[in-house]
Amino acid sequence: MKEEIIISGFGGQGVLSMGKILAYSALLENKEVSWMPAYGPEQRGGTANVTVIISDELISSPILNSFDTAIILNQQSMDKFEPKIKPGGVLLYDPHGITRAPVRKDIRIHTVDATEIASDMDNSKAFNMIVLGAYLKVLPIVQLKSILEGLRKTLPARHHKLIPMNEQALQAGMDRVK
């Protein structure tokens, strides 16, 4: 098993932390993982992306040019990464803020309106966990209980009270992905 994922959107959407929680959960399931951010003078509103690789075997390059899955959260990322999904791969995107729908016919395309769900939940910070939930519904690459365990391990203890809200967000994403 090997899953090569790009998560890309605006800085501030929680792209990097989503990737980190996913990588950490895979590590809890004894997988090999790598997490490579596009680092730079990033800021809220700028672009941010992270490449996450989850594999049964040792990972060679942490930097890739084609992906099994692209999780796309803004138009620039759609333009940049839609062509880089492997045939038969998965594109998951939030239609909110996407002005040009994807054109590929040789990939599986799913949507989750995480912006709307987050607003229904009255919690914009739940956005990335909604998207992660949607992804896990499409590709159950790690178990939900590992994600929750990952959250417990990566969040400082003072934020543990937020875990039920995160669980709710993951579940909402799973329920409402199309």
């Binding site: 980190k20 993982v33 790598s34 490579m36 942490p62």
Partner: peptide, 10 residues
């Protein structure tokens, strides 16, 4: 380099 410095692995 920046790649190995910034990437996360186990």
């Amino acid at each position: 380099d920046g790649v190995i410095g910034q990437m996360m692995e186990k």
